[in-house]
Design a protein around this nucleic acid. Structure first.
Lengths: 243, 243
DNA sequence: CGTACGGTTGACACGACTCAATGGCAGTGG
DNA sequence: CCACTGCCATTGAGTCGTGTCAACCGTACG
C-alpha cells in the first residue's frame, strides 16, 4: 500500500506538474528543465505535524511544495514562537538556511503534504550554468524578502481587523493563482496558527472572525473560508498592491 | 573642492577597506578580489535626506555602505510608511529589488554617506564564475531574511520595552563589529525613525527612553547612546542569539 | 470513556495610542 | 544678527484596543 501511494504521488515531472507556472520552472528552456528535473528529488508525502526540518539542522536543500501546506516557525531563546510564513503549493521553502548554512526555523507540515527536494549544491551548480535559473532563484528570494517587509508593516502599523482582512485577501489571491476559487477555499492552518502569525491573541481573532461573519465580509467555518464581499475586504486592506 | 573630497573618500580599494571583513569580500581569494574590485563602482558621498533609490526604480545595483547610514522605507498604497531596516557601514542594500527587478522600498540617506555600487549584471556574471562569491551573496541574502524574521517576532510578540531593549542591543553589537565601542555609540537615526521601525508611537518611545535612563539601563542624549548595563539590557531581550 | 487540545465567550485590566500643548533646535530669509 | 518657520522631541491627560484570565464546549484521539 505504501508503495502505491508513493508511485501515484511522486511520478509527475516538473514538465507535467500543474504548478510549474508558479514554481521554479517558470520561463526556463527545454534544456534547463531537463537538467532541473534530474536534480529534483521527489519524495514520499509527509504526514501532518511532521518536521520538514528543524531549527539548527544543516541546510542541505530547498523544498518546493507540491501539495498540502507547511508553516515556518521562528523560536526565540526564551521559547517565544512566531510563525513567519505559511507555504502553499508552488512555493519554495528553506531560504532561512541560506545565511549560516543551518536552518533558523522549524518547518512543520500542516496537512499531509508532498514536496520536491532541491539539493542546494546541485542547485548552485545549475545556477552557475544557467543564468535564467539563477535569476529565477533570485526572483523567488526577492519575493520572500518583499513579503516579509510587507508583513513588518502589517504587524507594526495595522489594527487587528486590518491584519485579518489582509490575511484573508492574501490567501484568496494565492488560491486564485493555483486555479482555485478566490471566494471559497480551505485554510490548512488552525485559528491559533493564524492568530500567532498575525501577532494576535487567539481570543481576539475569534471575536474578529465572528464580526466579519456578522458584517457580511467573510465567513470562516471548519477551516473553510468564504469571502462574502471582496470589495469590503479589500477596502479594509488598502494595501493590496504588492503583486 | 568637490574633486578633493571625491579623491579622498573614494580611492580605497576593497582590499584596503577596513570593512572588508564585514562586507562582501569576506573569505574571497586574491583573484576573486581583483575581479570584484573591477566591478565595484565607488561613488561620491551622498548628502543627508537624499534618495539612494526609490520605490519603483529599476533595480540595477546592490550598494555596499562604506560610511554613514541609510534607512529602507516600505510604503503601502494608503501612504503608511514602515522603516524595514537601518543600514550601517559594511552592510549591503538593494535586495528588495531582486523580485520584480524594481525596488519596493525607498532607500534614504540618514547622514552624509558613501557607498560602493555593485551593478547587478556584473555581479551576476561574477557569481557564475566564482562559487565562493555566489555563496557569499547567498549568505548576505539569507542574513537579511533571518533578520526580517527575527523582526517579525519582535513586532508580533514583544512589548514596547522589549523592542527598545532589543534595538539598543542590536545597535551595540553592530557597533562592536565595526570596531567601535559597544557601550557608547552614535545613532544616526531620529527618535521618530526608531519609533517607526519598532512599531511604536514617538511618544511611547520618548517615555521609554526616559525610563531606561532613570533605571540605569541606557541613556540616550542627542543621538548618542550609552549602554549603562549590558546585563540588564540583555535580560530584557532574552533573544540575543541569532548571530 | 477519559484526556487533551482547539476554539469560543465574558469580564476585566492595562499598555500603548491619540490628542493637545510646549520647548528646543536648525535652517532660512530679512 | 535676529526673527520666523517648521520639524523633532517631550510631557500630560484621557481613551481604547487588545491582551489576560477563567470558564466552558466540542471534537479528536488513544
Amino acid at each position: 500500500m505504501h508503495s502505491n501511494i508513493k508511485l501515484a504521488e511522486i511520478q509527475a515531472s516538473c514538465r507535467q506538474c500543474t504548478l510549474s507556472e508558479l514554481c521554479l520552472p517558470r520561463g526556463l528552456t527545454e534544456e534547463e528543465l531537463n537538467d532541473l528535473e534530474e536534480v529534483v528529488d521527489r519524495q514520499a508525502p509527509i504526514d501532518k505535524n511532521q518536521y520538514l526540518y528543524r531549527n539548527g539542522d544543516k541546510f542541505k536543500s530547498f523544498f518546493a511544495v507540491k501539495s498540502g501546506a507547511l508553516k515556518s516557525v521562528f523560536t526565540s531563546v526564551d521559547g517565544e514562537e512566531q510563525i513567519v510564513g505559511f507555504h502553499l503549493p508552488g512555493e519554495l521553502v528553506g531560504l532561512d538556511g541560506l545565511n549560516t548554512k543551518r536552518h533558523t526555523c522549524d518547518c512543520i507540515v500542516l496537512e499531509r503534504s508532498s514536496v520536491c527536494e532541491l539539493p542546494s549544491i546541485r542547485m548552485e551548480e545549475l545556477c552557475q550554468r544557467y543564468s535564467s535559473l539563477h535569476r529565477a532563484m533570485h526572483s523567488i528570494i526577492g519575493k520572500t524578502i518583499s513579503e516579509d517587509q510587507s508583513m513588518l508593516l502589517l504587524l507594526a502599523r495595522r489594527s487587528a481587523e486590518e491584519r485579518l482582512a489582509s490575511f484573508l485577501s492574501s490567501l484568496s489571491q494565492r488560491s486564485q493563482l493555483r486555479g482555485i476559487s478566490g471566494s471559497e477555499f480551505d485554510m490548512p492552518m488552525s485559528m491559533r496558527d493564524i492568530a500567532n502569525y498575525l501577532g494576535l491573541a487567539p481570543e481576539t481573532l475569534s471575536r474578529l472572525v465572528k464580526k466579519f461573519d456578522k458584517t457580511g465580509v467573510a465567513s470562516i467555518d471548519k477551516r473553510r473560508a468564504i469571502i462574502l464581499s471582496h470589495d469590503r475586504l479589500n477596502a479594509m486592506v488598502a494595501d493590496y498592491k504588492q503583486r
